[in-house]
């Protein structure tokens, strides 16, 4: 349990010669709430894609002692790496309960699959409470509010038994109240897991990050606590420079 951490060593991704991620190394420990920030095109989402097997990458990404790179998407997911997407992607025609039940069931055998769901799995019941959707369990996921969909997605990661949660802009488009709720939710679930949040929202980062990695042009520009990163002149230059030039 305590030996499980996410370690990236010299991870690189390039598309037809364009280098999107250029030798990123970082270590995220369990219980850490790591924020991954950086200007548009810095390679944040691509890095998450690389770890989850969506795009081929060079270098090494390990969780525990297991190498992730080069494995298939669903195999990586089964190793305990879970992710969300910028646009909430839940199964809209299914109920909240069905969404969570599917997320909890990747290890089910064929006989279980061919039978009906007669009871609610315990872990699903717990998660419904954690994400605050107990009363909406039979609601179609498609009609949930935007924030609720994102929480459902996070809930799906938990019942999926993901030990590493890679969240791509989880609070985009949320109201202030929903952001607050989401941050608290991440804190609650993050203690026993390794959480990496890709985010643009600086206020949200300041409130909830325990550590921050700044990416710029595919490279790690700075890493540390929120205060350390904010004080880093290179970070200021990237953000202020961009502000001064407009869209660089």
């Amino acid at each position: 349990m305590n030996g499980d951490y996410l370690e990236l060593t010299d991870v690189g991704v390039s598309f037809d010669g364009f280098v999107a991620v250029d030798g990123v190394s970082m270590t995220v420990l369990q219980g850490d709430l790591r924020f991954l920030i950086g200007p548009n095109g810095a390679g944040k989402t691509t890095l998450v894609d690389a770890i989850t097997g969506l795009v081929p990458a060079t270098g090494s990404a390990t969780f525990g002692a297991t190498e992730l790179l080069g494995k298939k998407v669903h195999k990586i997911a089964r190793l305990g790496i879970g992710r969300t997407f910028q646009t909430a992607s839940v199964f809209e025609e299914l109920s909240v309960l069905q969404n969570l039940d599917i997320a909890a069931g990747a290890g089910r055998g064929p006989l279980t699959m061919l039978r009906r769901r007669t009871s609610v799995p315990e872990e699903v019941e717990q998660v419904l409470e954690v994400i605050g959707l107990e009363d909406l369990r039979d609601r179609q996921a498609g009609v949930l509010a935007h924030g609720q969909k994102q929480w459902l997605e996070i809930g799906m990661l938990i019942v999926q038994n993901a030990r590493v949660l890679l969240l791509d802009e989880p609070v985009a488009g949320m109201s202030a109240h929903e952001r607050e709720e989401t941050g608290l939710l991440l804190r609650r679930i993050g203690a026993e897991r390794t959480v990496v949040v890709v985010e643009h929202d600086m206020d949200f980062m300041r409130s909830f990050a325990t550590s921050v990695t700044v990416l710029h042009a595919g490279k790690v520009l700075s890493e540390g606590t929120v205060a350390q990163v904010q004080a880093d002149p290179r970070v200021q230059e990237v953000y202020l420079g961009r502000a001064a030039e407009g869209v660089a």
Partner: peptide, 12 residues
């Protein structure tokens, strides 16, 4: 409805 999403839940 969401083939890719299912993949990320650990199913093929």
């Amino acid at each position: 409805d969401q083939e890719e999403r299912v993949r990320f839940l650990g199913y093929d």
